[in-house]
Amino acid sequence: MKDQNNMKTSLTVPLQLFALALVLLAGACKAQKTADQKIIADGAELTLVADDYEFTEGPAVDSKGDVYFTDQPNDRIMKWNASDNSVSEYMKPAGRSNGLYFDDEGNLLSAADEKNELWRIDPDKNVTVLTDGFEGKKLNGPNDLWVDGKGGIYFTDPYYQRSWWTHNEPPQEARSVYYLAPGTDTPRVVGDIDFEQPNGIIGSPDGKLLYVSDIDAKKTYEYDIRDDGNLYSRKLYAEMGSDGMTIDNRGNVYLTGDGVTVFDKYGNQIQHIPVPETWTANITFAGPDQKTLFITAMDSVYTLEMVVHGVR
């Protein structure tokens, strides 16, 4: 009996140590998870840059960290200089540009919906129309875009009636996501064709995933990207739609509307950034190190310093 009690005691001590180790490991994992979810710099506050626009949209960062964004009702593209926090007019008229994105050659790509076109604006401000239609009809109105590593362009084509259009019905029956392959002028529909209103779009830096918001359906989807540019394996990423979108180096995806809502790569919400405007339209990472979150919201633009940084 004495030997059995000693045996129980000798077994109990290692089990207690094992349980303690599990508790410590769980605590370390929780602390690491909390650290991984920290995305805003210590002490950082949302900073108003300027508020003298009509409606801001489409921020795109260049290789220097400067941001170009649109003031669509006033038909102009603005430029924010990261070095001195100044804003100046870059281009007017600007084809009623909405979403913007830079390609790897330093050209500014624009969803120019005055005439339902996709533009390339070179550094000298020369404009090339990349595409203006699909299957013999005009596009509905390109809205937002993302460029893959091959130079192909994904863009959303919802329908928002514009005061500068003479037509009042969508030219395309479906509101789709398109892919314009490099060296071509004819886009093709990729992914699904049952969107209510596709809007925000962003891809992962490795070119394997594409996120597309169906803003009217209040959903954002994740797609796998094939080598030929086609999309497959649609998965629900978040029960939330979005106007504009961006992604950081940890794979967190930033959605807009009521401020900025941030989801980790698994689709779990980790942060909400309030913005004092009735609508937050779009976002990108800016600055030389891409650690400044640049936010367009109604008649204003804001910045917020981050721990994470943007990626292409």
Rank of each mutant, 00 (worst) to 15 (best):
K64R: 11
Y232L: 11
M306A: 05
L22E: 05
L11W: 10
S10C: 06
E239Q: 13
P14T: 10
N282I: 12
M7N: 10
R226P: 01
R162K: 15
Q172R: 04
A60Q: 01
L139P: 10
I215V: 14
Y237W: 07
S97I: 00
M245N: 03
G241Y: 01
P14K: 09
A111K: 03
T56C: 03
G149E: 09
S86Q: 09
L180T: 02
N126E: 14
M298K: 09
M240L: 14
G257N: 08
D289F: 08
L46K: 00
Y101L: 06
S88H: 10
S300G: 07
M298C: 09
S83E: 13
P187S: 01
K115N: 15
T280D: 11
K92H: 14
S163M: 13
V275P: 04
K219L: 07
M306G: 02
Q16L: 15
P198M: 08
Y179T: 00
K218A: 14
M245H: 05
N5S: 09
W119H: 13
H309G: 07
C29L: 15
T278A: 15
N249E: 15
A35D: 14
S176G: 02
N249D: 15
D132W: 08
F263Y: 15
E54K: 11
Q197V: 10
P170E: 01
F134K: 03
I193F: 04
D113C: 07
V67F: 02
P198T: 03
K218H: 12
S176A: 12
L20A: 10
T131V: 08
G151H: 09
S110C: 09
Y254G: 07
S88T: 13
A35W: 10
A94C: 08
Y232W: 11
G244L: 00
I153T: 04
L24Y: 09
G133M: 09
I283S: 10
G27R: 12
F285H: 10
P182E: 02
V301Q: 07
A60T: 01
K137R: 15
E54V: 13
D264K: 11
A82M: 05
V49E: 00
S213N: 02
A35V: 07
V260H: 13
Y302V: 06
E54Q: 11
G136K: 10
V13Q: 12
V129N: 07
Y237M: 05
